[in-house]
Design a protein around this nucleic acid. Structure first.
Length: 285
DNA sequence: ACTATTTCCTGGATGC
DNA sequence: TGCATCCAGGAAATAG
């Protein structure tokens, strides 16, 4: 379940391996494709493009693409002709189980492979996603906007403002990508534990002081997790096949019934907005 | 304008 | 052992 730290780790790994490479051809799997843009649009945008950078926005991996000039000239008859030397992005959301793999072309094609981009270097970028919650799309430069703010960029004042007047539980607000982007179930629970706030607390009832603590907690948890390469639960590994280690630092997530690491009280689990939520009833108010 | 709930999807875990 | 059922959850869609 890639959240911000995992996606950041993945994007860095991909950047290291495919920056500067050129996409020569693209294959998209049949059936209901996990696409947010029309298939032809994706193929047209990716083929021939050079990957100039790989980054992250919220939980999205963003490949920055440069389209060569001669490409546009040679295919002049194309209706939606590419502007010369145009820029675009390939945006990938991994959903729950998505993976972006860099493979040798002779590597066995895994079940649930939905897209393959052949690279000039001879390798392939493959998108594999058993549960099909992941999504692929393309955008022209600047088109890919997400509404929420980056937790690691936002300042305290704007962070506090996000929750003003919201009756929804703070846990739901943290998961709402239109407010804050990149925080998922694990990091929401871990942040709330560190801030001493119960997940069901209505956002609007949280004091300024507590919100300041939450602001620091969210950022601290995310930074620490990035440093450790994310949380490896189920079978998450980064593009180099390495596991993350933040799961060893989880204080409440997945620890139902186990003693709180601070006060030994049994960690409780409840469901909020359809998501399991873990907390210590004594440490969190 | 918000908020809450349902839906999508498959593999692994659990239960009888 | 085998089969059915449940559960995980991001975000879009739907309902209130």
């Amino acid at each position: 379940m890639p959240e911000l730290p995992e996606v950041e780790t993945i994007a860095r790994g991909l950047a290291k391996r495919v920056t500067g490479d050129v996409i020569e051809s693209v294959w998209l799997g049949s059936k209901p494709e996990p696409l947010k843009s029309p298939a032809e649009h994706i193929v047209e945008t990716l083929e021939g493009a050079r990957i100039s950078a790989v980054g992250r926005m919220g939980k999205h991996i963003v490949f920055d693409l440069e389209r060569p000039k001669q490409q546009a000239a040679a295919k002049g008859k194309r209706r939606e002709a590419q502007v010369e030397g145009s820029r675009a992005q390939w945006v990938v959301h991994l959903g729950m189980t998505g993976q972006m793999l860099v493979c040798k072309p002779d590597a066995e094609i895994e079940k649930h492979t939905h897209a393959i981009a052949k690279l000039k270097s001879g390798r392939e970028l493959r998108f594999v996603d058993p549960r099909r919650f992941g999504r692929l799309s393309v955008a022209r430069n600047g088109d890919f906007e997400t509404v929420g703010v980056e937790p690691l960029d936002v300042d305290l004042a704007r962070f506090v403002e996000l929750f003003r007047g919201r009756k929804t539980p703070i846990k739901s607000a943290l998961l709402n990508q239109k407010l804050l982007r990149g925080v998922g179930n694990i990091y929401a629970d871990e942040s709330l534990f560190r801030a001493g706030i119960r997940p069901r607390r209505r956002a609007a009832t949280i004091t300024r002081e507590q919100l300041e603590k939450l602001y620091e907690s969210v950022r601290q948890v995310l930074k620490e997790a990035i440093k450790l390469g994310g949380s490896s639960i189920s079978d998450y590994v980064d593009p180099e096949g390495k596991e993350g280690f933040f799961q060893l630092r989880h204080r409440v997530y997945g620890r139902e019934g186990e003693p709180c690491l601070v006060c030994r009280t049994s960690v409780k689990r409840t469901v909020i907005a359809g998501r399991s939520s873990h907390y210590c009833p004594k440490c969190q108010k």
